[in-house]
Amino acid sequence: MIYIRLLYEFFKVGLFAIGGGLATLPFLQNLSVKYPEWFSMEQLMNMVAVSESTPGPMGVNMATYVGFTTGKVLGGICATLGLITPSVIIIIIVASIFEKFKNSKTVERVFYGIRPASMGLIAAAGFLVIKEALLNIPLFMENRMITDLFRLKSVIFFVILYIAYTKFKKHPIFYIALSAAAGIIIRF
């Protein structure tokens, strides 16, 4: 039953994705490999863009989107409920031992290892996304020409956009709109 499966899979995401924002991305990539019929990597990237451009926390938006793509409205609701259930349970426990938790050595020690790992996961998710968007590996494998490896127009646009993003620090939605326009004109 798809709804139970969504609840279960997103419960796991909620339990192990730590750090907010893009932290759920590596887990969702993993899901798209495990259940290829649910959604593709390309769809996942579109979901990231839509989730960044709409109100609400990224992780919740992504869960609803994946759930909706897989099982319509009820699927979206189940995925979201799955995602937030571990949070609710854990926070209610933590709240009752708040002072102890705040000063806990154990928590500090565990997070000493998890923080860099969580960064590594996000970077790896980024690498997979970049591989799809900026590199043309099939063409490179065919011709063995390093110049065929990069999608040149895309790489140039990426560099310009990255510089603009770090320099002007406007809201992501601004750059997403800009890139949509660029995509329509340039057709990457």
């Binding site: 924002g21 893009l22 991305l25 390309e42 990237m45 579109n46 990231v48 863009a49 960044e52 960064m119 996000i122 970077a123 998710a125 980024g126 996304v129 970049i130 799809e132 968007a133 900026l134 895309s154 646009f157 990426f158 956009l161 990255y162 993003y165 770090t166 992501p172 750059y175 997403i176 800009l178 890139s179 949509a180 326009a181 660029a182 995509g183 329509i184 340039i186 057709r187 990457f188």
Partner: peptide, 18 residues
């Protein structure tokens, strides 16, 4: 086509978040 541009922007967002 719009999403072909947006996907590049998503790369930017992920790299800068990292």
């Amino acid at each position: 086509y719009a999403f072909s541009g947006i996907r590049i922007c998503v790369c930017v967002l992920i790299v800068s978040a990292t």
